[in-house]
Design a binder for these strands. Structure first.
Length: 203
DNA sequence: ACTAAGATTACCT
DNA sequence: GGTAATCTTAGTA
């Protein structure tokens, strides 16, 4: 779908239709795994917290003022990574969810560790061997998986030479009726703070 | 050109 | 709970 088509639907039918894609993707991604082979070490985790950022009606999105050098990858088509620098200090990982030129994505806020916990603990500079709190924040996820700007704009699906990709959950976890999702307002934003577009996977 | 604010985190009291 | 660290953008002049 091209931008003009989405704009038309937005005007005619309200913002629900346009929002549906990315907001649904944010929920669908819960339970998927992220696999990193950065530095030749395999590390992975299950996505347990996401946030949706949309083009229309979302004043908190990086794409709200159009494409810039920083947010360029957010305007790629669905299935790419958008990695940006947060507060000049941390990296944050997003899964792009709209067609080329739109600018929508899902922020990966938290994962549960699966593989490479030793490496994760070293990267996170944790002193104890407990993984508690190691991956519960977007900056922490990127530090733990070795993610930085060099993965910005890459495909999020596995291919030769790929260093970071997603894999679907086992079928029994992917069934929507067995997945308990909690929705809350998004964290750390001021504009559009009423939208309940933060999603958590409850056990 | 300058300034304020930001999808954060760690460390301090 | 308060704050520093530090990069990018938008708004203002």
């Amino acid at each position: 779908m091209k931008k003009a088509v989405l704009q038309e639907k937005y005007n005619v039918q309200g913002n629900e239709l346009v929002e549906l894609g990315t907001v649904q993707a944010a929920q669908a991604l819960l339970g998927w795994s992220i696999i990193s082979t950065v530095d030749g070490v395999r590390c992975s985790g299950t996505i347990v917290e996401t946030e949706a950022y949309c083009q229309y009606g979302d004043e908190a999105s990086h794409s709200r003022c159009g494409e810039t050098e920083r947010n360029r990858s957010m305007f790629l088509d669905a299935g790419h990574w958008y990695v940006y620098r947060s507060y000049g200090v941390h990296w944050c990982l997003n899964f792009v969810t709209a067609d080329s030129g739109i600018g929508e994505a899902v922020l990966i806020r938290s994962i549960a560790p699966l593989e490479g916990l030793d490496t994760i603990i070293v990267r996170r500079k944790l002193t104890n061997q407990s993984a508690r709190g190691a991956l519960n924040g977007p900056g922490k996820v990127c530090q733990a998986l070795g993610i930085s700007k060099n993965l910005d704009g890459e495909s999020a699906f596995h291919r030769a030479g790929c260093q970071l990709w997603i894999e679907p959950p086992p079928p029994h976890l992917n069934a929507s009726e067995s997945k308990v999702i909690r929705a809350t307002p998004r964290i750390g934003i001021t504009r559009s703070s009423d939208l309940p577009w933060r999603f958590l996977l409850e056990h």
